[in-house]
Amino acid sequence: MSTQPLLEVDHLKVDFRTDEGLVHAVDDVSFRLGQSEVLAVVGESGSGKSVTAMTLMGLTRSPNARFEGSARLRGQELITASDDELRKLRGKEIAMIFQDPMTSLNPVHRIGKQIVEQIQAHDDVSDAEARDRVVTLLDRVGIPRSRERIDSYPHEFSGGMRQRVMIAMALSCDPGVLIADEPTTALDVTIQAQILREMRDLRERTGTSIILVTHDLGVVADIADRIAVMYSGRIVETGTLDEIFYDPQHPYTWGLLGSIARIDRPRPHRLPSIPGQPPSLIDRPEGCHFRPRCRHEFEDCPKYPELEGRIGQAPGHDDRCWLPVEEKRDRRVVADGQIGLEAEGATA
């Protein structure tokens, strides 16, 4: 990873006006993405992970949206860029693949044409040249008989194959950054494994940086270099893969890690779970957003927690929890080497 980050996001805020009130979808999100790095943005629904990703692409722009903060791709500002400037970057410098491959391709156009459309939007190439590029791309993402299949319609492909097409499309202009929003969630596990392997290979070969938006910590462990854990619109903890998995600092991260059923461990009598529900994005608790569900709440928690490194932590491993580091290491439950929560009664 080079020292000059490819993408720098600082204090990004996204609010949406709705009939019920102002939805604070993304609140003070900052991160760096280095060259050929895979950053996993992890969180549950409503955590703001998808909105963050889509905002980088300018896909959340609407009369009801309000943006603050900055996001710079190779120094170029994305948040305040004009629609036209952003359009030139989209698909060229920064590309995206989406969750549902069944609905993400236009059913009425041939897949080759849909990819050619993107190539010709950015590069001045002839139809024949663009087509050749598409064939190469389809080969690269493992679509057999690419020369014939280029003229197929999306419905003639399975979900896994469509997701390969989406990846080929995203890679068609050699983007510096690839945003993958839950790319394997809608797929079966054996197909998911194929797609993840494809993404790993691509990163090796092309050096593309990837922002992987997901709720699945298994997928994260499989592919990510660094992780940002989001909760209620904020990044609550960020660090390297090993830091987050083996030295998590934020009680929400503990809960997340602890509540996954794992096939490689003896099964506990009860799955540890985080009690309660995530707060509404309209009416959030003061200070730490995780406070109402946290067992370790104390008098500092209503104060606004900055995302920062604390004494005793490795640089780059930041979190938003007020507990002192020693206290955290004491309090988080480590059973059989597994970080988790107290196992007893967390159901109701």
Binding site: G218, V220, A221, D242, I263
Partner: peptide, 14 residues
């Protein structure tokens, strides 16, 4: 194959 395809949420194990 199914079991093997499941990514384990543990980087070292994985």
């Amino acid at each position: 194959a199914l079991l093997s395809a499941i990514p384990i949420p543990d980087p070292r194990e994985n």
